[in-house]
Design a protein around this nucleic acid. Sequence first.
DNA 1: ACTTACAAACAGTCAAGTCTGTTTATTTGG
DNA 2: CCAAATAAACAGACTTGACTGTTTGTAAGT
Lengths: 245, 245
Amino acid sequence: MAERRRRSQHERTAETSARLLNATIDLLHDQGFSRISTPQIAAQAGVSRGALTHHFATKEELVTDAINAMLERVTADLHRFAEDIAARGGSSDEIVDYIWRMMSDRLFYVTMEYLPEARHNDEFKDRLVPVVKNFHAGLDAIWMALAASRGADPGHTRTVMNASMCLVRGMIAQTVLREDPDYYSEMLAFWKAQVARHFPEKPARAARVAPKPATAPAAKRAAEPNSKPAKSLPARTAPKRGARA
Amino acid sequence: MAERRRRSQHERTAETSARLLNATIDLLHDQGFSRISTPQIAAQAGVSRGALTHHFATKEELVTDAINAMLERVTADLHRFAEDIAARGGSSDEIVDYIWRMMSDRLFYVTMEYLPEARHNDEFKDRLVPVVKNFHAGLDAIWMALAASRGADPGHTRTVMNASMCLVRGMIAQTVLREDPDYYSEMLAFWKAQVARHFPEKPARAARVAPKPATAPAAKRAAEPNSKPAKSLPARTAPKRGARA
DNA sequence: ACTTACAAACAGTCAAGTCTGTTTATTTGG
DNA sequence: CCAAATAAACAGACTTGACTGTTTGTAAGT
């Protein structure tokens, strides 16, 4: 046995809780809400079931706490990204890529697992709504930063933001039944072009690269023509067995 | 006892199966996949549990059959609508409205209930994929009819179609946690304007009503300015207790 | 000493699938 | 055409297994 330092109560609680919360998210992602049980979560976390029940009275409490912790982590990242974007005046393409990566990296898969529960369980839903609101505030910060730096209308920018989020949600839902990377990368490229059209060029910078006719057949094949070649665009399609973050 | 006509075996099977399949979809919509049980379905259908097990060996079989039946119904409607659109040359606004109505009228709520199951159960998924493909063929027919009548590029039209579907999926997912009719109607109006931009006017008809600048701040408030005032646009927000169709 | 963290056994519930028995329709031999 | 034979539709009890929440007991920290 390795030297096991004496840990304070607070440390023990923090570690055990964290293990359980992480295990819950991992299993939620990998197996789904209806398939996970408290014995399984305890096993995955490497603690006894008694420890689990000690820290979380009910399964519902454990799951909502786990989701809240996840959303708070993601929201913190979001706010950091917003500051970064505001500082260096990033492009809308960058934002779309970020959202896609964030959402398809477990976040929306986990969301899809608990949405049905939230739809039928008001207490569950009520616990989630506030932290989800906070998450949306993070999103708003990002887009408002872009709107400010480009002099775009905030109200209209919010509509574009909301549409972007909903589009990505729908795309990720679609990955469950449809495996086709081209389908997703084409749609992302199309959407980036759409979003870019709503933000005028930065006032500081001078000329536009290619004005491009803004009429109907705007982007016959909107795949490549836009900015970045393809850093790590789409590719993710419903990863069932994901390693932990 | 009221006069109970002698029914053929075939009639009895058809009726009992139909009752069970309908009850399954109703309960799937109202309670969710994880909450429904075979005793409950039998009760809702007004048949005994024995009758249920006689016609459907497993719960999985019952549920997939029920979903398939629903999707086939919706797909039939879709093809009818496609013919109709082709015949009278409807607008893209009309199509967007139709899709929104169709999806938010239980279809995508039911889908959200079974997607998690499909994600973790390959057999379940494999049973669904073919009928979902057929559904998408119906969608394709609609949009290709529009593209043909407007002389739009089919490939690009498909991208717009896919984006429309994903957007609507994401919007409906969002209704679970966010109740805000304006949010949805604004987004729909915005999207209709986007889609309309990709279809040139009908060659037969003469003048355009209002060309409208297609530049950045295209629709500062895109709520009313588009075509139809508002027939039965959005309004639906996560109806938990829906009457049967 | 006393409280908190952890461990494990326990009790109650309920689902899915199987099995046995009963009624209703269809087939068939006279 | 009818009655016996057969098959299908239906009804409900039973088995097994698993999960949640509870309780009782032990070890670690304050």
